[in-house]
Design a protein around this nucleic acid. Structure first.
Length: 120
DNA sequence: ATTCTGACTTGGG
DNA sequence: CCCCAAGCCAGAA
């Protein structure tokens, strides 16, 4: 079984991305957010052990393209507002999903983090 | 290999 | 309340 090896391409210092590394870690934390509650990007990053990577959380969620196992709609920005435009399809869907879980939005389109924030 | 782009946060003025 | 700059990572072209 001379396999014509490539000199161990994967044996190099290639960091095997497991479910507990990278974005998998983020998805895991987002999945813990209880229904009817919201968390901020920064909060997710911190809980995932990725301080200062709030931005990365947003990118991670944007990359998942619609995985039902991840309640991405429960993640909003620190201002208590949905980061997707209220005029975008996804934005409206996010708001709709949250409202269906009991989350209330004020006239400003903002959510009270003090009231609906997860673990505050 | 390099460059660009994104669902953000925080601190200061 | 608004605006600006820096810190951060992964994937596509």
């Amino acid at each position: 079984m001379p396999r014509k090896p490539k000199a161990g391409a994967a044996a190099r210092g290639a960091p095997e991305r497991g479910p507990d590394e990278g974005w998998g870690r983020i998805y895991r934390v987002v999945a813990m957010i209880p229904a009817g509650r919201v968390a901020t990007y920064g909060q997710i990053a911190a809980l995932a052990g990725l301080p200062r990577q709030a931005r990365q959380v947003g990118f991670a969620l944007a990359a998942l393209t619609g995985e039902p196992a991840v309640p991405w709609h429960r993640v909003i920005n620190a201002r208590g507002e949905i980061s997707l435009g209220a005029d975008t399809r996804s934005g409206r869907r996010q708001r709709g999903l949250l409202e269906s879980e009991g989350v209330r939005f004020d006239a400003n389109g903002r959510v009270s983090l003090a009231e609906f924030g997860w673990q505050q």
